[in-house]
């Protein structure tokens, strides 16, 4: 088990808690009456790494597109960085970096040129949000270096691998040093090494104050990176919770022992459940329990506080709902 990602809690604490993404009753009906998103109330706070989980087709991408003003909500309210979307898109979006449903670039142009063109196509940047025209080329170079494309930035995108394109998409999102990163499946197509690099990059960005909204169907990715979880199931938000709280120790201790039968006999009523060599013990301090078992000559191969896994939570939430609300 890994500990929660470092840094995020501390950096969020210096700032006054500020809601960065807020939706109320966000609903999107597509033609034909398909309710892709159904009454979602999202809340993402500044400094969060928000993991937006859901199976394919659960409405993640539609929600992300609504947040960015690409898809217009049927009803509900959206606020991003404190302003209404999509109405205030012109002032909100320059402060947001986004990667939506895979990267896209002009194949005949180089990666660097793509970044420069994308930057130039928008309104002239204001304030310290990434400078003006003059340093555009420098910022593109910097963004490429950040995602590890420094060496290939001058090659046409046509020849890029899927992973390189993914990195280029990230570079485009990072180029203006946004306050909020909205990333839809950012590690798609990357090799394990690439995934680790991107994870480290995002953690580093988060430490410097960037809020990250990460939509993914990969539990591991979310578990390793995120501080808050939102779980989407068939268009509805079924869970929205800090990851630390979800994975807090349950108060039980897991004991794995080749002498499970003897251990169960010794602990008696404290054993809640036994499954082969594995015991669930309640109401015990792990250290005390360990000492007691060992002193009784019981071999212990594993012992530790029980923590719930994200996979189980996800499974439980989605299964329960599917039982309750048949569609």
């Amino acid at each position: 088990m890994r500990s929660a990602p470092p840094g995020s809690a501390e950096s969020a604490a210096d700032l006054t808690p500020e809601v960065v993404i807020h939706t109320e009753g966000l609903t999107k009906l597509f033609a034909g009456g398909v309710r892709a998103v159904d009454g979602i109330d999202l809340e993402v706070q500044r400094g969060d790494v928000y993991g937006f989980l859901g199976a394919n087709g659960s409405g993640k991408t539609t929600t992300v597109r609504c947040l960015l003003g690409l898809v217009l909500a049927t009803s509900g309210r959206i606020e991003v960085l404190g302003e209404a979307m999509p109405r205030r898109g012109a002032s909100v979006l320059p402060r947001v970096g986004a990667l939506v449903e895979g990267p896209a670039a002009y194949g005949h142009l180089s990666g660097h040129r793509n970044l420069v063109l994308q930057d130039a196509s928008g309104r002239r940047p204001q304030g310290q949000l990434g400078g003006g025209r003059k340093d555009r080329g420098d910022r593109a170079t910097e963004a490429l270096a950040q995602v590890g494309l420094g060496a290939v930035g001058s090659r046409p995108v046509r020849g890029y691998s899927l992973g390189m394109r993914q990195r280029l998409g990230l570079a485009a999102a990072l180029m203006r040093q946004p306050e909020l990163l909205v990333l839809d499946e950012p590690t798609n197509g990357l090799d394990p090494q690439g995934i680790r690099e991107i994870r480290e990059l995002l953690s580093a960005l988060n430490r410097t104050g960037t809020t990250i909204f990460l939509s993914s169907h990969l539990l591991a990715e979310v578990e390793q990176l995120c501080t808050r979880i939102g779980l989407l199931d068939r268009g509805q938000l079924v869970l929205q919770e800090p990851l630390a709280r979800l994975r807090a120790p349950t108060g039980r201790v897991v004991v794995v022992s080749p002498d499970a039968a003897r251990a169960a006999a010794l602990l008696g009523g404290c054993v809640e459940h036994r499954d082969g060599e594995r015991l669930l013990v309640k109401g015990a301090e792990p250290a005390v329990l360990n000492a007691r078992l060992v002193s009784n000559g019981i071999r212990v191969s594993e012992l530790g506080p029980e923590r719930r896994r994200l996979e189980d939570i996800v499974e439980e939430r989605t299964r329960r709902r599917s039982g309750e609300v048949p569609r």
């Binding site: 003003g69 690409l70 979006l93 320059p94």
Partner: peptide, 11 residues
């Protein structure tokens, strides 16, 4: 090509 969405969120 998918570049339309990136143009629009540029914005």
């Amino acid at each position: 090509a998918g570049t339309l969405r990136y143009l629009l969120v540029r914005p």
